[in-house]
Write a protein that binds this DNA or RNA. Sequence first.
DNA 1: AAATGTTAGTTAAATGTTTCACAAATACTA
DNA 2: TAGTATTTGTGAAACATTTAACTAACATTT
Lengths: 207, 207
Amino acid sequence: MINKIPQAAVPRLSLYYRVLVESRGKDYVSSDELSKLTNFTAAQVRRDLTYFGQFGTPGKGYEVEALKKAILSILGTDKNWDVVLAGVGNLGTALLSYKGFEKQGFKIICAFDNDLRRVGKTLEGIKIQDISELGNTVKERNISIGIVATPGEGAQEVINILIKSGVKAILNFAPIRPQVPPSVGLLNIDLSIELERLAYFLTKSKS
Amino acid sequence: MINKIPQAAVPRLSLYYRVLVESRGKDYVSSDELSKLTNFTAAQVRRDLTYFGQFGTPGKGYEVEALKKAILSILGTDKNWDVVLAGVGNLGTALLSYKGFEKQGFKIICAFDNDLRRVGKTLEGIKIQDISELGNTVKERNISIGIVATPGEGAQEVINILIKSGVKAILNFAPIRPQVPPSVGLLNIDLSIELERLAYFLTKSKS
DNA sequence: AAATGTTAGTTAAATGTTTCACAAATACTA
DNA sequence: TAGTATTTGTGAAACATTTAACTAACATTT
């Protein structure tokens, strides 16, 4: 392919989709309107969309429903994805309870923990299993997305099990940078690092 | 300034600090070793560090303790930061309970919610206050960092209050892209968007 | 049907970031 | 002390992304 798609364009697509959902009632929307709704420039909106195809009509704009469908299909959110959760502490529980995921086709279908006080309990309709069953369950149920919300210690081990069992994409909240083979997608969300970025911003803007 | 610092260098600095902490016992560490520990290239390690100053000794490397202190000072994590939390649902509770923040100098000192069932309760030693008191409390206590963990509706309003009351940096978990003046630092963590990025990765790698 | 205005798609320039390669500085060894 | 091995810091090149300017297509108005 000649046109490489910038990494950063993908989350922007998600945002275009959101504002399209909110602009129910309109038949067409222009890059200029999308620009105002997302705070990206109109040029970037057009550029981003053409990375993935041609969706618009000159003089008119983009057909809302068609563009919505197209973005869903590009992102893969027109399918349903089964998700496994490893680590059901405070954060894990919060993720399990978050209603937003299911709307977008992501369903946490099983959850694991190594704390025996939690194992066996049911949260949001999901029975927490012992971490020792992680590998087999993931294999049996053929799950391809994993969320890791364990402490840093042991996170790499959990991730190794996930990968060995066929998981192809991981959202990692543990404060480590796990090793994964290139075939596996990895996104790290590291709360401490984000706060440190803010602290840097504050320190810098004072000087 | 001639050398503008790439945005992306800042979170890398956080990671250098982490591996330095873990390499206790060593007096000196080379860019090559830091490279292996962080999976960034050695050239990037050196480049990143020189954005902020000259910390190394040719032929020897970087003195661990000195570099640790320098990074702390650059990031601003050598100071203590008071943090306000808006929204004490599942995610907010998880953040309130997360022990990692305090170690890095971030302390959530007050929390607010608009749900009367939560207001008045005490979590992790912090009494949840009514959202109507948010502005005054932030002003009185002179807080400069805010974490927003409310639903999307109302998040912009909460953020407006934070900014009006003197908050200068915001970590936003609500699924919106808030408007903030350029003088205010903003980082968005949007869980749905992260999952959609993974879905895109999976969709793409199958084709 | 012609003229005008709007808007997507494309090409080129500008900006920002990372990588490469090497000189200069220091440490080590004999 | 001279010579060799390390390792930093950095100019320049390579790469990636965003912004801006332009072109062509379509819609609307008269």
